[in-house]
């Protein structure tokens, strides 16, 4: 075990897989010699060689396309899209190719690729370095979409994603790279070193995709969340004094319907929180799943806490970000009925 922040845990996952499997390659913009703008691939080229960890042209569509071709050959490429905001040039390759190849060829070809990309705001990144595009991927049949919230989960989920024979979109909340940011941007950030999930095994382990984690058991209501908002919700729950159960989905697709519905059936109340904007966000899917499975258990309307339906602003970042106050407001609202 070592104390790792999320960057180190992701690096360790790729290091472990590069060591275990000669078919694993890592490439993307600035990931080679330099080790990535967030340092997630630091040292990997020096250790595993330039043919296995290398820089790519600034062409996200080309990065994903060549990864699909490599996957069809039999490799297991792990590519980095430098910011999730830049993934859109690769969208056609993800939707029309990576996610459809197995189906349209009836299993003759498939794309076992992992697309890593830092997402989310809170780093003064403005509208082009802050977005959370998960719901545009969960809508696509044939893609898996994962978002960890701790170093421990990040490593285990990334290893499972790399070993998966289907394409996985692996979104990394970059505000969590250095610590479990709880939304209190005016307070010092707690480092991962002082958090239990910052203790990470050095060797290989997997966390199966599709298994949610109950990060805080509770009886009063259920909070469904993922990514940075896990820590924001935990902080809001403590401050509100409401005994909420907080569920970190970890994997948006496949989704752990059993854990979600079992919890809401127990608590009868539900808050859904994500950083992405509201309309057609993943929260809409979650709300509908809860409604379908738990309608008769619900004591109050489901509430969503999300980013606003605007582009992510620069100066007003903390007015956009769904911080603890907004989560607490929703918690109180579902408890009132």
């Amino acid at each position: 075990m070592s104390s790792m922040n999320m960057v180190q845990a992701l690096n360790s996952a790729m290091d472990v897989m590069l060591t275990r499997d000669p078919n694993v390659l890592v490439f993307g913009e600035d990931v080679g010699y330099f080790g990535g703008v967030f340092r997630c691939t630091a040292g990997l080229q020096a250790k595993h060689g330039r043919q296995r960890v290398f820089d790519a042209p600034i062409a996200e569509g080309g990065i994903v396309a060549t990864a699909v071709g490599m996957g069809a050959y039999g490799l297991r490429p792990v590519v980095e899209i430098q910011f999730a905001d830049y993934i859109l040039p690769a969208f056609d390759q993800l939707v029309s190719e990576a996610s459809r190849l197995r189906y349209r060829s009836a299993g003759e070809f498939w794309a076992p690729i992992t697309v890593r990309s830092p997402c989310g705001g809170g780093i003064h990144g403005g509208q082009t370095h802050s977005q959370s595009p998960e719901s545009i991927f969960t809508h696509i049949s044939g893609l898996k979409t994962v978002m960890p919230s701790t170093p421990y989960d990040a490593k285990g989920l990334l290893i499972a994603a790399i070993e998966d024979n289907d394409p996985v979109i692996f979104l990394e909340p970059k505000r969590l790279y250095n610590g479990p940011f709880d939304g209190h941007h005016d307070r010092p950030l707690q480092p991962w070193a002082s958090h239990p999930a910052g203790e990470v095994p050095d060797d290989y382990y997997r966390i199966e995709l599709g298994k949610a984690s109950i990060v805080r058991p509770g009886k009063a209501c259920t909070v469904l969340t993922y990514g940075t908002m896990v820590h924001v919700c935990l902080s809001a729950v403590e401050e509100s004094g409401i005994d909420a159960e907080v569920i970190d989905l970890r994997s948006l697709f496949p989704i752990d319907v059993e854990t979600i519905t079992a919890s809401v059936a127990r608590t009868g109340r539900c808050v859904i929180a994500h950083e992405a904007s509201r309309t057609s966000g993943f929260g809409a899917e979650l709300g509908q799943l809860v409604q379908e499975h738990c309608f008769h258990s619900l004591e109050s309307p489901i509430r969503r806490v999300t980013g606003w339906d605007t582009p992510y602003p620069h100066a007003l970042e903390w007015k956009y970000f769904p911080g603890p106050k907004r989560v607490m407001h929703a918690l109180k609202s579902v408890m009132e009925n």
Partner: peptide
Amino acid sequence: PHAVGWAMAS
């Protein structure tokens, strides 16, 4: 471009 990725893999 898949052909290029396949060729790189080869």
